[in-house]
Amino acid sequence: MAIVENEKNVPIIEVNHVATRFGEAVVHRDVSLTIQRGEVFAIAGGNGCGKSTLMREIVGLLEPTSGSAKLFGMDSRLLRDGHPQEIHRRFGVMFQQGGLFSSLTLAENVAVPLKEHTKLSREIVHDIVALKIASVGLPADSAAKFPNELSGGMRRRAALARAIVMDPEVLFLDEPTAGLDPIIAAGFDELVLQLKALLGLTVVMVTHDLDSLWRISDRVAVLGNGTVLGIGTMQELSRSADPMIHEYFHGPRGRAAREQAVKREAHLGG
C-alpha cells in the first residue's frame, strides 16, 4: 500500500458537524469525530441512532443534510458513481446483508473489484481470490457456489473476502457479527484482528455486539440523541458518567461482556 507521504498525518476519516434528517425524522443533530490510521474504531449505540447512516455518509452512499464527512481528506459527497476510482479502491465495505451479487458465484463476486480495477492475468486473479477466500476461513469448494447456496455466516465471510480483495487501507464493517452464533462471531473478531495485523488495515465497524466491542475495538464512539455521547476506549467509556452510556454498558448484557473481557485479560496476563 503506497501511502502518499503528505497524507500520513491527516486523520483517515473526519466527520464534521454532520446533521441528517429524513423528512421529519432527525437522525443526527451534530456528529463530529475523527478516526486515525491503523485503529479499530467502533461506532456503537442503540437501535435507530444512525450508526449505519453515519457509515453510509462516510463512504458517500448518503449525503448528510449539513456538515461534511471526509474520507482520506476528501469530501464524501464527491464520491459518486464510482468516481474517483483512486479513492474507491482504497476502502472496502462489508454490508450487513453481504451485498453479494446474486448472479455471480462466490469466487466471481470476490474477483469483481480485481477485474474492474486492474488488468491482471486470470491466473493471478484466481490465486488472489482463492487466497482471500481461504484467509476468511471459507472452504475451497464454496468458491463455485452462488450466494443463495451459502449460509448467513458464510455469506458474511464472502462479503468480507470481497471487501479486502484489493487490500484496502480502510475496511468498513456494518454489524459484522449480528446474527452469528457466538463461536463464529468470536472467530470473526479474531479474523478482523488478524487481517488488521497482516495488512495494516484501519477498521471502522458499526456494531452493538458488546463482546466484540471489548475484544477488538481500540476506540468507540457511542451515538445517541443525534450526537456523539462519548468517545474513547472501552475502559474510559465504561467509567463514563453519562446516563445513556452507563445504561448501555452496565445493563445485564454489558456487565457480562465486561466480566468476560476482564477474565480474558487476566488469563492472558497470567
Partner: peptide, 21 residues
C-alpha cells in the same frame, strides 16, 4: 509475514476450482 501467509495457504489456492466450470 505476508509471504508466509501466502505460502501457508498455497495448497488451498491450488486446490481451488478453476474460474469457469
Amino acid at each position: 509475514e505476508l509471504l508466509r501467509m501466502v505460502s501457508a495457504n498455497w495448497d488451498r489456492i491450488e486446490a481451488a476450482p478453476p474460474p469457469k466450470s
